[in-house]
């Protein structure tokens, strides 16, 4: 693996398009999105249900469930195209270099094997350690993810662990091959608040220690704000805003991001009404023309209904919104 070309990002997604063919026509779930993740960077991908964020994650690791399929664009990992690789080759790259953490820790673990055996086997397939060495490494990993009494718990089965502890095991499993990229899909959603905080802290520390890049897919802005370096906000299959996390969270540019942030209640903020985005995310078979957000947007004008905006640099972030285009039409807004 060549690690040269440091200016190249680790993961590069270009014009990715994911389609779901159905008998009433083909639905476009992810529509022409591009983003990149650098070495050791945490990119948060945030959006509400139906935004296409999970499908984006699945497309990157080649785990799209049929009939969903990649219909356009390319995915480059370490400057190598991985979206068109045959299954076996992709599987090898996935095992070695890309780790995965899913929402439900129970489904990621085999209930019939002890935690230690699952870890050891994964380590053995990706390194030339001896059986003993692999077990030692497994133990270290369990200790690293903060499992108390790891020496005893390594020989227990997944059902003997609590939800939070299971998610730690899954993270340890993802770390087995020392991957350079970890894709985490809603890793904290199924957990209690206090456990959620623990897992976020753990993820942050591990990325720092291992230098792994993370693509963190979640609906929870709080998790993003705590963890991510940069954040991409998705709406109806498109990225509407992407930029450094502090800029997006505190100074959102796109009206959707702005509304989303305003709709989150905060402890200590005494407001009678939360900012409300009326309506709901459009269904995939009824995505409006132009900017997909225009029917719900308080600032929409004629242009928004006609043409789809592309991502444009707006100060520190990039937003796909006609408000930020240097065009004379701006003065002629209706309403």
């Amino acid at each position: 693996m060549s690690r040269t070309g440091t200016n190249q990002p680790l993961l590069q997604v270009e014009n990715l398009r994911v389609e779901i063919p159905g008998r009433r026509g083909t639905l476009v779930a992810v529509d022409d999105i591009s983003f990149a993740i650098g070495e050791g960077e945490v990119l948060g991908v945030v959006g509400e249900s139906g935004a296409g964020k999970s499908l984006t994650g699945a497309a990157v690791i080649g785990l799209l469930e049929p009939p969903c399929r990649i219909a356009g664009g390319q995915i480059l990992f370490d400057s190598r195209r991985i979206d068109n690789l045959p299954y076996e080759k992709l599987r090898r790259i996935r095992g070695r270099h890309i780790g995965m953490v899913f929402q439900d820790p129970l489904t990621s673990l085999n209930p019939l094997y002890t935690v230690g055996r699952q870890l050891t086997e994964t380590i053995l397939t990706h390194s030339d350690l001896s059986e003993k060495g692999a077990r030692k490494r497994a133990l270290e990993l369990l200790q690293e993810v903060g499992i108390p009494a790891a020496e005893r718990r390594i020989d227990q089965y997944p059902h003997e662990f609590s939800g939070g502890m299971r998610q730690r095991v899954v993270i340890a499993l993802a770390l087995c091959a020392s991957p350079r990229l970890i894709i985490a899909d809603e890793p904290t959603t199924a957990l209690d608040v206090s456990i959620q905080a623990q897992i976020i802290t753990l993820l942050k520390r591990l990325c720092r220690d291992h230098g792994a890049a993370v693509m963190l897919v979640t609906h929870d802005m709080g998790v993003i704000a705590e963890t991510a370096d940069r954040v991409a906000v998705m709406y109806a299959g498109r990225i509407v805003e992407i930029g450094p996390v502090a800029d997006v969270v505190l100074r959102a540019r796109h009206p959707y991001t702005e509304g989303l942030m305003g709709s989150i209640p905060l402890v200590g903020h005494d407001v009678d009404r939360l900012t409300q985005i009326d309506g709901a995310m459009p269904r995939l078979n009824a995505i409006p023309a132009g900017c997909a957000f225009n029917p719900r947007c308080p600032k929409a004008f004629e242009r928004c209904r006609q043409a789809r905006p592309e991502l444009e640099t707006v100060e520190a972030t990039e937003a796909a919104c006609w408000l930020y285009e240097e065009a004379p039409e701006r003065s002629g807004t209706d309403g």
Binding site: V193, Q196, D220, G222, A225, V249, L250
Partner: peptide
């Protein structure tokens, strides 16, 4: 106190 501490910091 612990629960309040666990709330993600959205105000950065």
């Amino acid at each position: 106190r612990m629960l309040l501490d666990a709330i993600p910091d959205l105000e950065m």
